[in-house]
Design a protein around this nucleic acid. Sequence first.
RNA 1: GUCCCCUUCGUCUAGAGGCCUAGGACAUUACCCUUUCACGGUAAGUACGCGGGUUCGAAUCCCGCAGGGGACGCCA
Length: 464
Amino acid sequence: MTQVRTRFAPSPTGFMHLGNARAGLFSWAYARHHGGKFVLRIEDTDLERSTEESVQVILDSMAWLGLDYDEGPIRQTARLERYRAVIAEMLADGRAYKCYATKEELDLLREEQRAKGIKPRYDGRWRPENAQGKPVPEGIKPVIRFRNPDDGLVTWNDLVKGEISISNTELDDLVIARDDLMPTYNFAVVVDDLDMAITHVVRGDDHVNNTPRQINIYRALKAPVPEFAHLPTVLGHDGEKLSKRLHGESVSVMHYAAEGYLPEALFNYLARLGWSHGDAEKFPRDKFVEWFDLAQVSRSAAQFDQAKLTWLNHEYIKEADNARLAGLVGPRIEASGAKLAGGPDLVRVVALVKDRAHTLQEVADAAHLFYGNIRATPELLAQHVTDAVKPALAALREKLGAVAWEKPAIAAVVKETLTQHGLKMPQLAMPVRVLVAGQTQTPSLDAVLELFGRERVLQALGNF
RNA sequence: GUCCCCUUCGUCUAGAGGCCUAGGACAUUACCCUUUCACGGUAAGUACGCGGGUUCGAAUCCCGCAGGGGACGCCA
C-alpha cells in the first residue's frame, strides 16, 4: 500500500473563507488519519488576481487552525518551465494544438449555442483536421487546447459521492495554456498532482465538473489517475454558496480569529459541518484525526450556522486554561482604553467571568469593569443608593474593614449586614455594585469585591 | 437552456429493510435555580419533499416528478 498523499491548493485571491478552510481541514485530516503526507500548493497562475497578501492570509489561516503541512507552500508560478515542457510534448504529437480563435469569436459562438438551447462548447474549429489550409491570422497569439476524446464515458468512483459518469460528448477541447503561455487551472492541477504524487484529491464539489476533463488529461499523459473525493458545498446562512460578493469578510477564517473565537472551536465546528461520527458534537483535534473517514462525509450541501459555532466557542472558553485566556484577552481590554496595571490579577478575573462569555471579546467586555474605572451615572446612584440603605452600606463598610479578605468571609459579612438591617440581598447588593463597579450587572457580589481588593472597595463604599 | 450532483426537525446530523410511535446537537419555548445580568438544570414542540412501485415489512431499494445546489471562462 502506497503512502497517502493529499494536498490543499487554494488560490491567493482574497481571504480564505470557511468553505476553503473546511476543504483544507478534511484533506489534512485524511492524510493525518492515514499517516500520510499533506502538501500545500498555492495556485497563483491567475496573475491578475493573485496577491502576496493573500498568500500570507492563507498561511496565517492555516497556522491559526493548526493545519500543518509536510511539503510546500509550492507555487505554481515557480513551476512554469515544467508546464511548458509538458505542453511542448503534447503539441508535438497532437494531444494538444494551437487555437487562433479570438475571444470575441468564442463569445459569439457561445451566444449562438445558448440561443439554440444547447450547452456552450468549443466547436473544434482549430483542430488540425479542421484547420487544414486555413490561414493563420496575423497578429493573434494562439492559445493551446487539449484534444479531448470525442466519445466514450469518463467514470470514476468518487470517495464521497459514489460513481459519477460523464460522457465525453459533453466536454470540449479546453484551453490548457493562455496566449501568454500561462497554464490554466485544469492543466496545471493535473501536472502538479502528478508530480507531487498526490494519491487522493480531496476538494470542494464545485470541481466535480472539472474532474472528467482532468481524468482525460491524466490519460493523455499516460499517468495513473488518483482517487477523488468531492466535498459538499458550504452554504451561507442564506442558503447561497459562500462567496466574497454575497457574504463578504464575515465568512473568512481570520475574521473569526479577530472576533474572539478560539481556533479549536472553529476547527471542531468545521469538522462537524458535513461530517459526523455518531452523536459526537464536541471533540478534540486528535479524536477528529482518529475518527475521520471520507465515508462519513455527507453528500449534500451544508449551511453554516453561526449560533452553533458560538455555542462551541462558549464550551471551549469554559474549559480553556485561565492563563492562556488572560493572555488572549488582555490586549482586547487594553484596546478598549482600560489599563491592566494596578487592577486585579487578570487570570483570576478571567476565571470568574469566562463562564458567561461566548467569545473572547465577551470575556474582555466582562473583565473590563475591573480595569475601566467605571463611574456610576447620577441616575443609577439616585436609584440604588437611597437614604434607606445608607446606614447598611456604612455598616457593611466598617465590617469589611476588619474582615479577612477572602470570598467566604466577605459573604458572611454581607449576610450579617442583611439580617441586622432587615434587608433582602438585592436591596444591599445593587447599591454596592453601583458604588464599587459603577454598574448593576456583575458576577456574584462576594467574588467581585474580593477581586477589587479591600482598598478600592472601602474607598468606593465611603463615597456617598 | 444543457449537463452533473443533492433532498431526515428552522440548522448540523444519526439512520446502510424490521431495533424508528425516527435518535443527538444548536436554536426556540416553558419551568427550576438565583444576589442583578448571565451560567447551569429539567422539559416541550418541530423532520423522513411528492407520487408510484419492490417487499410480509421502506426514512432506508427502484422509477418518475418537484425543489435546491453546482458547472458550462484565455477564473480557480
